[in-house]
C-alpha cells in the first residue's frame, strides 16, 4: 500500500508539473497596461496554483486507479464494499471550502481596490452607439474624440452609457470591462501604467456590425496628452 501511495503521488507530481509548464510556458495573459490589471493578474495566478493542485489530484487518482485496478471485461468479481469514510468526506468538504473562501476574500479585496477612486481622476464619458465609440472629456470642455487618448499614470474614471443597445467597453490590456447600457450610467476605473497603442473592443453582441465596433486607445505621456488636448481644442 505504501508503494502504491508513492506511485500515486509521483503521478500527481508529474501531472502537476506538466500542467504548470502549460501555464507558464505560454503567455496566457496580455501584457498588463494598467495597475488594475496587475492586481487582477495576482488573483489569476492564485487561482491557477489552486487549480493545478486540484486537477493534478483528480487526474492522478483516475489514471492511477485505471492503471492499477483495470480488469478484463469478462471478470465477474466485485470490489471491496466500501460505503464511505466520514473523515475523508469531511476533508474534501472542508479543504475546498477553505480554498474558495480564500479566493473569494482575495477577489473581494482586489475588487474593492480596483473600484476605489483616488483624488480627482480624469473623467472620460464613453458613449456607445451601433457601431462606434465616442469619448467625451468633460474636464476639457467636453472635448469629443473617436480615439481614446489617456495620460500615463493618472487614474481615469470612465462613465458610460449607450444610445441604442447594450455595448461593452473593453481594452484587453487594461483588464477592465464594463457594459454601456441605455438608460443608465455605469462606471469603471483604469490607471494606465504603460504608454502604447491598444484596442478598444465592444465585447457585448450589439448587432450586425458588432465585430467591427472597435476604436484605438493611445496611452501617452502627460505632456503629449496636453499637446493633444490643445490640438483638438484648437
Amino acid at each position: 500500500m505504501r508503494k502504491g501511495i508513492v506511485q500515486l503521488v509521483a503521478i500527481a507530481v508529474l501531472i502537476g508539473v506538466l500542467v504548470t509548464l502549460v501555464a507558464v510556458l505560454f503567455q496566457w495573459l496580455p501584457t498588463s497596461a494598467s495597475e488594475e490589471f496587475d492586481r487582477i493578474q495576482d488573483i489569476y495566478w492564485f487561482a491557477t496554483i489552486i487549480s493545478i493542485g486540484i486537477f493534478a489530484v483528480v487526474a492522478a487518482v483516475v489514471v492511477y486507479s485505471v492503471w492499477k485496478w483495470r480488469v478484463p471485461l469478462d471478470d465477474d468479481a466485485d470490489g471491496p464494499p466500501i460505503h464511505g469514510h466520514t473523515g475523508l468526506e469531511i476533508i474534501w468538504t472542508a479543504v475546498p471550502a477553505i480554498l474558495v473562501i480564500a479566493i473569494g476574500i482575495a477577489s473581494a479585496v482586489v475588487l474593492s481596490e480596483n473600484g476605489r477612486a483616488g483624488e480627482r481622476p480624469l473623467q472620460v464619458n464613453v458613449v456607445g452607439q451601433q457601431f462606434t465609440w465616442k469619448f467625451v472629456y468633460s474636464d476639457y470642455g467636453d472635448l469629443t474624440s473617436g480615439e481614446l487618448v489617456l495620460p500615463v499614470g493618472r487614474e481615469v474614471r470612465f462613465t458610460m452609457t449607450s444610445v441604442d443597445v447594450i455595448h461593452s467597453f473593453w481594452v484587453p490590456n487594461f483588464g477592465q470591462k464594463q457594459d454601456a447600457v441605455p438608460g443608465i450610467e455605469t462606471t469603471i476605473l483604469v490607471t494606465p501604467k504603460r504608454t502604447g497603442e491598444f484596442a478598444v473592443i465592444c465585447a457585448e453582441l450589439c448587432g450586425l456590425g458588432h465585430a467591427t465596433m472597435r476604436a484605438k486607445a493611445r496611452v501617452v505621456t502627460q505632456s503629449e496628452f496636453d499637446a493633444w488636448v490643445k490640438e483638438q481644442a484648437g
Binding site: S65, V66, W69, D75, D78
Partner: peptide, 8 residues
Amino acid sequence: LWRGRIHL
C-alpha cells in the same frame, strides 16, 4: 474507483 475492479 479506488480499489475497484474497473471495467473500461
